[in-house]
Computed example of a mutant assay.
Amino acid sequence: MTDFYAPPLMDSHYHPGQLIRTQAITAPNLADQARAWRIMYVSCDSRGELIPATGTVISATSANVAQPTPIVVYCPSFHGLGGICAPSQQLATGDEPLDQIQAALDREWTVAVPDGENLGITGLGPHTFLAARAAGHVALDLARATQTLPENTGIRAGRAPIVLWGYGDGGRAAVWAAELTPEYAPEIDLRGVAAGAVVSDPGALVSLRGRGPWSALALAGLIGLSRAYHHLPLRHVLTQDGRIVARQAENLSAATLLEQYRQPLEHWCERPDPWNDAIWRFVLTRESRSGAGNPVVPVHLYHGTHDQVVPVESGSGLFTEYRRRGIEVSWREYDANHFRTAIDSTSAVADELTGFLRRPQSAPAPTPPSPRR
């Protein structure tokens, strides 16, 4: 496993979406007929620099099918900042939740699951949690790489239609990927996106969640964004104890972060409102808030009315903004909390994606009005 995740030397010969290496894996909890491949491919970080990224591609469809099978890029929720918590690692050990992945496989789709920037790749962490632009790049480039898998993988996905699906921070990644597609990956046949519990405004959320049982997510956001944007003054924001904790947190899973760091965010910071620093505000407003671009494919947003992690207003606000701008968008609420909604919504969301895939490929839609600043 260590050899597979060793980063290559990146140079100008690489291009986004290029396949670097593949490795067949056994995913213990998947059906026997499913073929799973761990892959490394080229993507771009938040500044447009080439980076290696990893993910998993799974198919349960016969390799002898006449047409390429549709690809669903499934972006999971936040897994952590480092350690052995990348989805590709969790799938190989049988620890990755499979509800959405299995629902897609049951419909004979190829499923591509990105790990996220720096998650899994040896020595490049921590994961750039909350860095939305990079998350969108990584998802789109995984779709590109999946379409170029060699025949010996038994996966036929070349020139296949694509849909995006994500939940929690993965929902935000899916939305950003859709917003970035017209400029970043206009050649792919994207048909639609489904995103649940979307964090549309991370700045507002971390202010709300800086205290209480989810405060470790705010700390993780500080660490992740400072890794993505090197000019962000993390050392000047944190106390000495905070800097020690940040180094420790870089290698921890989400579950361990939430268990070990329950203190309010201000406990680790020089000031009670670190997000109000001018440089941090700029990144949170211009580089992290959903709605920066205009999807030209239909969008389905959904949320639990009792979501204790991401308030339902976060998703409904994005729905209202998309609808105001003339983007084709639908909305559904579930009478459940954050974790229950992820499961209860699976079948209905898969139905939405099926409808998107049945639509014929069309020319790019006229660009809606630019979002307000």
Rank of each mutant, 00 (worst) to 15 (best):
P52D: 01
D99A: 14
D351L: 09
P298I: 10
A365K: 14
V113Q: 00
A63Q: 12
E352Q: 14
V245F: 00
N294G: 07
G291V: 04
R358S: 14
P274S: 08
W268R: 04
C269I: 07
T354G: 14
F78Y: 12
C44F: 01
R35T: 12
H338M: 11
P311H: 10
V283F: 06
L258K: 05
T256G: 04
P97F: 09
A255L: 14
P16H: 02
G355Y: 08
W37L: 08
P150V: 12
Q248C: 10
T122K: 03
L142D: 00
P87H: 02
D277I: 09
T54E: 02
Y14E: 04
R211Q: 13
L91G: 03
A336L: 08
T256P: 04
F129W: 11
A365G: 09
G224W: 00
V111P: 02
G203W: 08
L9I: 12
S347N: 08
G171A: 09
I244L: 14
Y229C: 06
Q18K: 10
A157P: 07
T346I: 13
I51A: 01
R358I: 04
W268M: 10
D11F: 03
T341A: 11
A134C: 02
I223H: 02
G17Q: 03
V312T: 07
S288N: 09
E270C: 13
F356K: 02
W176L: 12
A157H: 04
A228H: 00
L180T: 03
R358F: 06
L180S: 07
V237W: 04
G317D: 07
P298Y: 04
G355V: 11
N64F: 09
A292K: 10
A31N: 12
Q100L: 12
G125R: 00
V193L: 05
D95L: 09
V198N: 02
R21A: 15
S43W: 00
R332D: 09
L105H: 01
A228F: 00
V113L: 09
R358E: 13
I51V: 11
R38E: 12
G291K: 02
L265K: 03
G203D: 10
Y167Q: 07
H236A: 15
S200F: 06
A131Y: 01
A134F: 00
